[in-house]
Design a protein around this nucleic acid. Structure first.
Length: 276
DNA sequence: CCGTAACCCTGCGTGC
DNA sequence: TGCACGCAGGGTTACG
């Protein structure tokens, strides 16, 4: 499931392959995957637009095009962007074809159809639902341990659901949230305002370190994540707790538990991450 | 303010 | 072997 590191990896691979190319034709097989803001036709508006550059905000990928247009792409759980030769056979879940001027395609595939591609005039990016309410970037210079501590102080929510709240910090999903809490030795159900200064500080470093490692290992492929070239990530081999229910904690050897917290499966070590 | 659940959807694991 | 079922998941929205 693409979280910040996976979206960053997709961004970096597409930057290399499709920057500077021009979209010659767009074919949308599943119209609900697509939306436009203030335009009638997704296909028509994209005709002859050149791909200028890429950006990422939280789990959103932003594709900047000529004509002052931006494509806002959210992969949700199973969305993929694949750069491939025009004659490569499409998968049965390929919903959008972007035909480029070099006889290659950029394709959007999404098994579960939760993803979205929104075409928007760049000046209206601030009106895109989800994007406009995003919280701070984990690698923003203003995201510091003081910032984190200060904002945790008056939150009464459990820390895990809070980490997943995109309007608080942008880009964390279920896998990295569990890995971060494990690294910081914090129980997912601990209330945010009960975290000590030390714990808040540990949490801050865990957020940046775990995400940095996720990027370094090119993302986590649990089911089917691939980058823009169809290559899997390698961070799944580094996971300490996520998906490891019943297995020994790498630190203390006790058994890793799974429990629903805020409606999401949460994996943690009950002895390293005490509620206390 | 916070928690819970529904919604969108397909694939997969489980149990009969 | 096959079928029915339930669960998983991100983010938004609705409701208590």
């Amino acid at each position: 499931m693409p979280e910040l590191p996976e979206v960053e990896i997709v961004k970096r691979s597409l930057e290399k392959t499709v920057t500077g190319l021009t979209i010659k034709k767009v074919k949308v097989n599943l119209p609900k995957m697509v939306r436009t803001m203030g335009m009638q036709s997704f296909e028509d508006e994209l005709y002859n637009k050149k791909i200028k550059n890429f950006a990422r905000r939280g789990k959103y990928l932003l594709v900047k095009l000529t004509g002052n247009l931006t494509m806002v792409i959210h992969l949700r759980m199973t969305g993929k962007l694949i750069y491939c030769p025009a004659d490569a056979p499409p998968s049965k879940h390929t919903h959008i074809f972007f035909e480029l001027d070099n006889n290659y395609h950029l394709r959007f595939e999404d098994t579960r159809q939760f993803g979205k591609v929104i075409l928007v005039p760049t000046r209206e990016l601030g009106n895109v639902t989800g994007l406009k309410t995003l919280g701070i970037e984990p690698f923003d210079k203003n995201f510091t341990k003081e910032f984190l501590k200060k904002h945790l102080r008056h939150k009464r929510a459990k820390i895990k659901p809070l980490l997943l709240d995109q309007t608080f910090i942008a880009g964390l999903g279920n896998i990295y949230a569990d890995e971060i809490l494990y690294r910081a030795r914090i129980n997912p159900e601990k209330l945010a305002n009960n975290l000590t200064t030390r714990e808040a500080s540990n949490l801050f470093y865990a957020i940046q370190d775990v995400l940095t490692e996720g990027i370094k290992y090119r993302g986590t492929t649990v089911r089917d994540f691939v980058n823009g070239n169809g290559e899997a990530g390698r961070y799944q081999s580094r996971l300490q707790v996520y998906g490891r229910e019943g297995k020994p904690c790498p630190h203390c050897g006790n058994i890793i538990t799974r429990k629903k917290v805020g409606g999401r499966s949460s994996y943690f070590c009950p002895s390293c991450q005490k509620l206390r």
